[in-house]
Design a protein around this nucleic acid. Structure first.
Length: 831
RNA sequence: GCCCGGAUGGUGAAAUCGGCAGACACAGCGGACUUAAAAUCCGCAGGCCGCAAGGCCGUGGGGGUUCAAGUCCCCCUCCGGGCACCA
């Protein structure tokens, strides 16, 4: 019988599908430790791609291993089911988004089953269904109550292709994250925002404690949050006394400020423009330049331009008047939209001042160097102030402290912290998303009225006509828009924007713990049992989208009063995060346009799910990019064929365990088995280098094949043969579950192989009794000697020196020193 | 510019704590089996010199520490990723 995954895999798939309890989590009362392992939920595009296969192969191996280690494992799967592709498909094929999405889910669920993934389908979450999204609305109302959800008019990112607003996190290099070549426009719109900035500090500080997260992700989040400590200082416009607050991180350089620079949209700049048509025109020009640079995605490349307003501002520290300029490189939405320009000590200010011939004044010098450094001198450490009144002679840090203290005392400024992170814009002018549960009524003017919680869900109407023109599609559905005001009972209209789909994925993993709760998003005790997630696995592309939003959501839920605490206890969603590398082909990310897409279906049809999954784990360590080579899959398939041939050949051999290891071949094989168990157990506990785990299994199988004659002759005791193949089968279970299950059954195993206990390492059996010790001369290999494992240093040294090749090398020279590293090597220092 | 990764045979990679560089595979070459092929099995395989024994060189480059460096330290190059006139 040849190895035939096409027969084995569907057979076991049917058995597993019929057993609902197989992958189900157990009740909390079980004495077992819990283990919550999840992979990021996919968007139901209709087909799995290789990136999914890799992601799920990693998570599945881990979940199965943890079951075998005796944990109570929660391993769920769900669907990030709202989003634009469903609407686009509707436009193209005239299929309702819901129908399209649910059909895709069914197809992908089927693919996952075919892959043999161990999900507990009883906890499946589909975010586009009302039983899920009603809780998005519920959370939205809670946030509204707490001032965390609010509406404001502002400049927002608009993708013309998506015909909707995007969050800052969804703009990549000035383009849409979904349409890499579509430049995002800036529009003024009134939109809903979630106040993620309220948690900015906690989100930042929490990163230090997330030791189980990749440093890379933590760094990306730190950069994204962009905390910057500084000082707000109020300058006064000389004529009107109008306040111009500037933000600076270097208040110590303020005696060197030679101008104030305003963003083109700054209120004061607008006020000046209103009185001066020529100036207004110039400012409009600057604004246009800035807008274009922003839309080109490279504000950094903007050529600096500015205009002198002819007005002056009074520096509150010096009483000096400095000219006020408007410049295109000053951003209205960072800091206060106004800066003080210190050309002597800032690169940008230096460049700008040189271009326009503005004054410069040196106020910081190195502490010790006698020669004055070239300008701009931006060093802050080991530097002192000069020409700065009473502050002259102070270190920069001390000057900052004293100057902040004065500003506070005289009430013209304050120490302040500025973040790059902006509030999360969640309104989307699209149909296929969660309706925002708000109502507008004449009785409250422009103030929105929340839909009462008992009226949730606000259902998304189905059977509507979808177009991309003219704003939110829901706005053209009168049955949806027209409603009754919850406050006055009169006619009112609903909010017609829907929520960003990242809302859905911000808390979905809590819902898994209580997926069918119809009175709450989940029960706190259930979430508290499973959370935090022990291991979260997904792509690094979500480092500053999903992974920052879901950290925010977790903190919000913790702060929602419930019972004697919050809704949950944990402050972070996941203890450990693993970001797997991309799957590439011919050196590039797989994409339709490049024509280098490898279909998982094809691979499974040709080599089986086991070989496909196992190759995804074998070809590279999981955190690195993986180059897909079909020959490699064929190689793994050949290997599995070898395992099948050998195991089935000896499957009927049984023997009493007390018979002992025997000697020779039997002992050697058992030793390798236990060394392999030790290695793989260790890999799961630490580095997750499954490529080396699988190579260890290959070494074991090669060793078995090399001893086939001894197995045939009966030289190896039957108990050893049985133990060997049982062990091999168990080691294979996390990586090739179908084949492992088949062989488990054939070798007499009961039930599911991945519910059998993970084999224990017999340390004594694993230990070699003879070691190969390399002998070096001055660090270069001379020979390898064999010594008994328990040899002491003197014995090893004697054996090394007794070796003929060593003697030949040493002849006529002096051995100055002998270094013996126990169990490792001998190095002779020869002169 | 700042920050985080990375660079090892023809290819994917291994070397977990400073201790035999290239495990395990893929591709290749040679052989067995076969009328032949596929499949399978056995063997060879970093580079250079050499019939061989053996020697020399070799982990992006340069320096250093050490009995010993892919691994530690300093400097540099290139590649990938993040942030960026952010005041």
């Amino acid at each position: 019988m040849r190895y035939s995954p096409a027969e084995i895999e569907p057979k076991w798939q049917a058995v597993w599908d019929a057993d609902a309890a197989l992958y189900a989590a157990e009740p909390h009362e079980t004495g077992k430790p819990k283990y919550y392992c999840i992979e990021m939920l996919p968007y139901p595009s209709g087909k799995l791609h290789m990136g999914h296969v890799r992601n799920y192969a990693i998570g599945d191996a881990l979940a199965r291993h943890m079951w075998m280690r005796g944990y109570n494992v929660l391993h769920p799967m769900g669907w990030d089911a709202f989003g634009l592709p469903a609407e686009n498909a509707a436009l193209k094929n005239n299929t309702p988004p819901r129908e399209w999405t649910l059909a895709n889910i069914a197809a992908m669920r089927q693919q996952m089953r075919r892959m043999g993934l161990s999900y507990d389908w009883a906890t499946e979450v589909t975010t586009c269904l009302p039983e899920y999204y009603r809780w998005n609305q519920w959370f939205f109302l809670k946030m509204y109550e707490q001032g965390l959800a609010y509406r404001k008019n502002s400049k927002v990112n608009w993708c013309p292709e998506c015909a909707t607003v995007l969050a800052n996190e969804q703009v990549v290099n000035g383009c849409c994250w979904r349409h890499e070549d579509t430049i995002v426009e800036q529009r003024d719109l009134t939109q809903w925002f979630l106040r993620i900035t309220r948690y900015a500090d906690e989100l930042l500080q929490g990163l230090d404690k997330l030791e189980g997260w990749p440093e890379k992700v933590r760094t990306m989040q730190r950069n994204w949050i962009g905390r910057s400590e500084g000082t707000n200082v109020d300058f006064a416009e000389a004529k009107s006394g109008a306040k111009i607050t500037v933000f600076t991180t270097r208040v110590d350089t303020i005696y060197g400020a030679t101008s104030v620079q305003l963003a083109p949209e700054h209120v004061v700049a607008k006020a000046f423009a209103a009185e001066d048509a020529a100036l207004a025109e110039k400012i409009a020009e600057l604004l246009e330049q800035q807008k274009q640079a922003r839309e080109a995605g490279d504000v950094g490349a903007i050529e600096k331009h500015g205009v002198d307003t002819g007005r002056f501002a009074i520096n509150p520290y010096t009483g000096e008047q400095v000219p006020i300029w408007v410049a295109n490189y000053i951003l209205a939405d960072y800091g206060t939209g106004a800066i003080m320009s210190v050309p002597a000590h800032d690169e940008r200010d230096w460049e700008f001042a040189k271009k326009y011939g503005l004054a410069l004044k040196r106020v910081i010098v190195p502490e010790e160097v006698t020669e004055l450094p070239d300008l701009p001198y931006v060093e802050e450490d080991k530097s002192v102030l000069v020409e700065s009144g009473a502050y002259s002679g102070l270190s920069c840090a001390e000057a900052q402290r004293q100057m902040q203290a004065l500003a506070l005392e005289k009430q013209f400024g304050t120490a302040t912290v500025t973040f790059r992170l902006k509030d999360w814009g969640v309104s989307r002018q699209r149909y296929w998303g969660t309706p925002i549960p708000m109502v507008y009524c004449a009785c409250s003017g422009e103030e929105p009225i929340p839909v009462p919680a008992e009226q949730l869900p606000v259902l998304l109407p189905e059977q509507i006509e979808i177009t991309q023109q003219g704003g939110s599609p829901l706005g053209r559905v009168p049955e949806f828009v027209q409603t009754t005001c919850p406050r006055c009972g009169g006619p009112a209209r609903r909010e017609t924007d829907t929520m960003d789909t990242f809302v859905d994925s911000s808390w979905y993993f809590y819902r898994y713990t209580d997926a069918h709760n119809s009175s709450a998003p989940f029960a706190s005790d259930k979430a508290n049992y499973w959370f935090p997630i022990d291991q979260y696995i997904g792509g690094v592309e979500h480092a500053i989208l999903h992974l920052i939003y879901s950290r925010f959501w977790t903190k919000v839920m913790r702060d929602i009063p419930s019972g004697d605490g919050g809704l949950i206890r944990n402050s972070e969603p996941a203890e450990r995060l693993f970001t797997q590398g991309m799957v590439i082909k011919d050196g590039a990310k797989m994409s339709k346009s490049k024509g280098n897409v490898v279909s998982p279906d094809d691979m499974i049809a040709r080599y089986g799910a086991d070989a496909t999954r196992m190759y995804a784990l074998f070809a590279a360590p999981p955190d690195r990019d993986l180059e897909w080579q079909e020959e490699g899959v064929a190689g793994v398939s050949r290997f599995l064929g070898k395992v099948y041939r050998l195991t089935t050949k000896y499957a009927a051999v049984r023997g009493s365990a007390e018979a002992g290891a025997g000697n020779g071949a039997g002992l050697k094989l058992l030793r390798t088995l236990h060394q392999t168990i030790a290695k793989i157990t260790h890999d799961f506990g630490g580095r997750w280098h499954f490529n080396t785990s699988i190579s260890a299994i290959m070494i074991l199988v090669n060793e078995i094949a090399a001893h086939e004659a001894a197995l045939d002759s009966g030289e190896v005791p039957p108990a050893v043969v049985a133990q060997l193949f049982r062990g091999l089968t168990q080691l294979l279970a996390p990586f090739a579950p179908f084949l492992a299950q088949e062989l488990w059954a054939q070798t007499g195993g009961e039930g599911a192989v991945f519910r059998a206990a993970w084999p224990a390492v017999d340390e004594a059996l694993a230990r070699e009794d003879e070691l190969e010790i390399p002998v070096q001369a001055n660090g270069k290999l001379v020979t390898v000697i064999k010594v008994a494992a328990d040899s002491d240093q003197a014995a090893v040294q004697a054996a090394a020196l007794a070796d003929a090749r060593v003697a030949a090398r040493v002849a006529g020279k002096t051995v100055a020193k002998v270094i013996v590293v126990p169990g490792k090597l001998v190095n002779l220092v020869i002169k």
